[in-house]
């Protein structure tokens, strides 16, 4: 028995070592920075001290490989963020989820470098995208950004399911509570970074299983699932158009009223890779209506993506991953520059 146990354990160690080497050298597992909770403002960003550069890969065979870089302020960006005095020119800040955070494109191919290239030094662009973050958090980040960096323009990327996901409680995340037709922020439960989790993040095998293979082991049937996905999937909470209208109204009203003197833009809609014309989703329409009421600008990306699709028939995402690719970032960056440049004139 003892020999069997020792042999089995020895093989397990051997297999782990081989797997670690394999997923570091032959097929690199995704690397991600560590999240850090900012208790003062109530949002998550990345910890630059943990790891400031890395290679993100996506897919079982690491089909997507892109570099990322966490700047000293804790965001995926090619540049450090400077306050108004240091930079001496206007700044544009944008907020969103993993779609615009940009781990699936090289750090030099994200929306912010594309816009800055277009601007030719006329303004800086700061990316405040963060995986799994939703509008309820974006407003907290916006407060921090306004106080620290005083941008002239704020761009909020909002996909339909992210609005509803703002109501799904999650540790370490600012969420809202919808009580009748009143929305108010929930108390944020700070996320505890478990030591075991930190060690697991160092393992290439664990990272491969969780990030590349998307393995979500469930100890009990019915457990698990990300918060964003919970709202996105058919099994997630359902909200009436009236409730969604309340949410959209609350979001836009707060974004505008809390950021006086700043041009506020809400961007909705994603890639439309069909020849047939796109239609605005209910949530996008609600956001567009709220923008009109509160003096914010609404941009739907649907016609932009659709026009490009008709012309080039080039994908804006990946076959196995519906996050945006560098081509989408370029297209969006160019379009946003056109809008922002006009605003900053």
């Amino acid at each position: 028995m003892r020999a069997f146990v020792i042999r089995t354990a020895a093989f397990a160690v051997f297999a782990l070592v081989v797997s670690e080497v394999f997923f570091r050298v032959a097929l690199p597992a995704a690397e991600l920075p560590a999240g850090q909770f900012n208790a003062e403002y109530g949002f998550r960003r990345y910890d630059p001290a943990w790891k400031s550069e890395g290679l993100f890969t996506s897919g079982r065979h690491a089909q997507i490989r892109a570099t990322w870089k966490i700047n000293p302020q804790g965001w995926n960006s090619h540049r450090p963020y400077l306050n108004e005095k240091e930079r001496g020119k206007p700044a544009v800040a944008y907020f969103g989820s993993s779609f615009i955070e940009g781990f699936r494109a090289n750090i030099s191919a994200n929306i912010s470098p594309v816009m800055e290239k277009q601007a030719a030094g006329a303004y800086d662009v700061y990316n405040f995208g963060m995986s799994d973050s939703v509008p309820s958090e974006h407003l907290n980040v916006a407060r921090y950004v306004r106080e620290r960096f005083a941008p002239k323009v704020m761009i909020f990327f909002c996909s339909p399911w992210h609005l509803a996901a703002s109501l799904v409680p999650a540790a370490g995340r600012q969420r809202w509570l919808l009580d009748g037709d009143v929305v108010r922020p929930r108390k944020v439960v700070p996320l505890k970074n478990a030591a075991l989790k930190a060690v697991a993040k160092r393992s290439a095998l664990v990272r491969y299983l969780v990030l590349n293979a998307r393995w979500r082991p469930k100890l009990r049937p019915g457990n698990g699932g990300g918060v964003v996905n919970a709202a996105q999937s058919s099994g997630g909470p359902k909200y009436t158009p009236a409730q969604l209208k309340t949410l959209a109204e609350y979001m836009v009203q707060r974004a505008v009223s809390e950021n006086p003197g700043i041009q506020v833009i809400f961007v909705t809609g994603g890639p439309h890779m069909k020849d047939s014309p796109p239609t605005l989703s209910t949530v996008s329409q609600l956001i567009a209506d709220a923008c009109k009421r509160h003096g914010a600008t609404h941009i739907s990306l649907l016609p932009i993506f659709h026009a490009d699709w008709l012309q080039h028939h080039k994908r804006f995402d990946f076959e196995h991953d519906f996050h945006w690719n560098a081509y989408a970032f370029k297209l969006v960056g160019q379009h946003l520059h056109a809008v922002v440049a006009e605003m900053l004139k």
Partner: peptide, 20 residues
């Protein structure tokens, strides 16, 4: 022998459906 086992383990990790 161990190489054969590791190959099987890697095949499961790389190509297997891990969703039970």
């Amino acid at each position: 022998r161990w190489l054969a086992y590791v190959a099987a383990v890697l095949a499961i990790i790389l190509f297997g459906h891990l969703g039970a």
